[in-house]
Design a protein around this nucleic acid. Structure first.
Length: 273
DNA sequence: TATCAGGGCCTAG
DNA sequence: CTAGGCCCTGAT
């Protein structure tokens, strides 16, 4: 099946964005995304055109929203004020990034793991957990492991997690499993909460602080007014914005601006050591 | 070999 | 509100 995407869309940048950790890149330029029980293979064929492995219906029903294609990022970039030259430059460099709508449970575990780790080591741990506890699915290209559900993780002990060398994060993950599988935190129900209530609910899990809660809210619940501030964003705020966070001024696209900023900082690490 | 920082959070004071 | 500890990796 072939589709046309007219708005900003760059697979390589999305894969490198630091919001998804299980995207696979094939040598021929094909990319693999997984959400829930669904696996997508997608490859750019020419400018704005893509070959996808799913039906048009599934693209419209599922992946269109997954890639946040109901929003024009072109328009969002255009509205960045000329006076904000740093942000314009960052958005230019990050042209093609999208905020993905990923599974809340997977994002919760992933971003609990992410604290005080590098992106490659996050990828390794998340992939290992999927391999060990998630269902295997055969596709045309490979056997893929889905991310395990709370039910599939409910009998996990700290011993089972030792192999992933998660350190102090192990008890946080066990607490997340306990609360979500036990029903004290319903990740579906909180999806209708307003930003602050959602944020507060997410933080009820041990090891979920401000930054991780913002990541879950932005990368799985689509709360684009929220902007996670990590060590990199902190450096940018200090060096480019005189220590004053610009995010409140970006309104309901603050999270998207954060993504451009994070990507830009990653591409120019030397400037922000 | 030793040191440091990595998409932070929790606890103590 | 801030300082220190925390598990472990990979880079230097």
């Amino acid at each position: 099946m072939n589709i046309k995407i007219t708005d900003d869309f760059n697979l390589q940048k999305i894969a490198d964005s630091g919001q998804c950790f299980r995207v696979k890149v094939f040598s021929d330029g094909m990319y693999r995304f997984i959400t829930g029980e669904n696996v997508l293979y997608i490859k750019q064929t020419e400018n704005g055109f893509y070959e996808i492995s799913c039906s048009e219906d599934q693209w419209q029903d599922l992946w269109h929203a997954y890639f946040h294609l109901d929003r024009s990022y072109q328009e969002i970039r255009r509205k960045i004020p000329d006076t904000d030259s740093y942000m314009k430059q960052a958005a230019d460099s990050g042209l093609g990034l999208r905020i993905l709508r990923q599974e809340p449970w997977e994002m919760m575990i992933t971003f609990i793991i992410s604290q005080q780790r590098t992106i490659p080591s996050i990828k390794k741990a998340v992939e290992g957990i999927a391999q060990s506890f998630g269902d295997a699915v055969k596709t045309d290209y490979e056997t893929v492991h889905l991310f395990p559900s709370p039910a599939q993780m409910c009998r996990i002990t700290s011993k089972d997690l030792d192999q992933f060398r998660l350190g102090y994060r192990t008890s946080y993950i066990l607490d997340a499993i306990d609360k979500v599988y036990g029903g004290r935190l319903d990740l579906d129900k909180i999806s209708v909460y307003d930003d602050m209530a959602l944020f507060h609910a997410l933080k009820s899990v041990r090891g979920v602080g401000d930054k991780v809660a913002n990541c879950i809210a932005l990368f799985s619940y689509g709360r684009t007014s929220l902007a996670p501030v990590d060590t990199w964003i902190k450096k940018v705020i200090d060096q480019e914005y005189q220590g004053q966070t610009p995010f409140p001024g970006y309104g309901d696209v603050a999270g998207i601006m954060q993504q451009y900023m994070f990507y830009y900082a990653q591409q120019h690490k030397g400037r922000y050591q």
